[in-house]
């Protein structure tokens, strides 16, 4: 089977996120970059599915030229083909991002045929627009379900087992929902669907030779415009230290009683 995964390069924040002077983006001067967590799991899931069922994984990203680093990382953990849609350093809005991705996907599919599955992360770790996957699926006229924490190929359709169906599990409070989605399909994946592997030395070496195709897209901006980013004002209150070590237990239980959680 052929699987496409769309990923986003995001800063890897520690305990605090700073903003550039113009308020347009995160100040990454002292930060490393990584693949947005849900999407790292999506790449792993795609690799596992092709290991089990055969096929190839293509990874696509819309981002600065430096996002090639995330494509090469995907290569080091087993992905096969790579497409970079280069933009400047500042995020594109969700409509614009989705249109460019949908065009680039259509271009790949025109040459090689439709992907059986397209995986997105449920939302990006930084901008968190919660919509790019849904818009792309809509552009391509394919079904999409978000929040997916389990995928199996083959599912029940009309009472019979159908190889062309992806059975997807979505976590809900206290359990999960099951969807039987006919392929070609799009799924929005969440962290927890798997534990992503670390690259092997062999994988790292191979990733250096991976060929990254560049596909420039000029697309109109959408209706959501960023004015500025800023850090929320934190209500800094003095931490009340209830004590040190196990001797603090009575003071803790006093607090629990006060809050009424001891009844």
């Amino acid at each position: 089977m052929r699987i496409l995964v769309c990923v986003k390069r995001v800063p890897a924040p520690g305990a605090r996120i700073n903003v550039t002077a113009d308020g347009q983006t995160v100040d990454a001067a002292h930060l490393g970059f990584t693949t947005s967590p849900h999407e790292e799991c999506a790449v792993e899931e795609a690799v596992q599915l092709t290991e089990a069922h055969g096929g190839e994984v293509t990874v696509m990203t819309l981002g600065p030229v430096a996002a090639e680093e995330q494509l090469r990382y995907a290569a080091s953990v087993g992905a096969h083909h790579f497409v970079l849609i280069p933009i400047d350093d500042v995020d594109w809005d969700p409509q614009r991002t989705a249109s460019a991705l949908a065009e680039a996907i259509a271009a790949v599919e025109e040459t090689n045929g439709a992907f059986d599955l397209i995986l997105f992360g449920n939302e990006s770790a930084d901008a968190g627009g919660f919509q790019v996957g849904v818009r792309v699926a809509n552009h391509l006229g394919r079904p999409i379900v978000n929040g997916i924490k389990g995928i199996e190929i083959g599912g029940e359709q009309g009472g019979e087992l159908d190889e062309g169906v992806a059975t997807a599990r979505r976590e809900i409070d206290g359990g999960f929902e099951v969807y039987n989605v006919p392929m070609p399909a799009v799924l929005g994946v969440k962290e927890g669907i798997n534990l992503p592997r670390y690259p092997t030395m062999k994988g790292r070496l191979a990733s250096k030779k991976a060929v990254v195709d560049t596909d420039e897209r000029t697309v109109e901006a959408g209706g959501q415009v960023r004015l500025r980013l800023h850090r929320p004002v934190e209500q800094i209150s003095e931490t009340v230290i209830l004590g040190t070590g196990p001797e603090a237990a009575p003071a803790v239980v006093d607090l629990l009683e006060e809050l009424g959680v001891l009844s």
Binding site: P13, I17, D126, R228, L229
Partner: peptide, 15 residues
């Protein structure tokens, strides 16, 4: 909200 709430974004919406 961006970054799950650790960063905020002021934006305009034309629609």
């Amino acid at each position: 909200v961006q970054w799950g709430g650790s960063l905020l974004e002021d934006a305009t919406l034309t629609a």
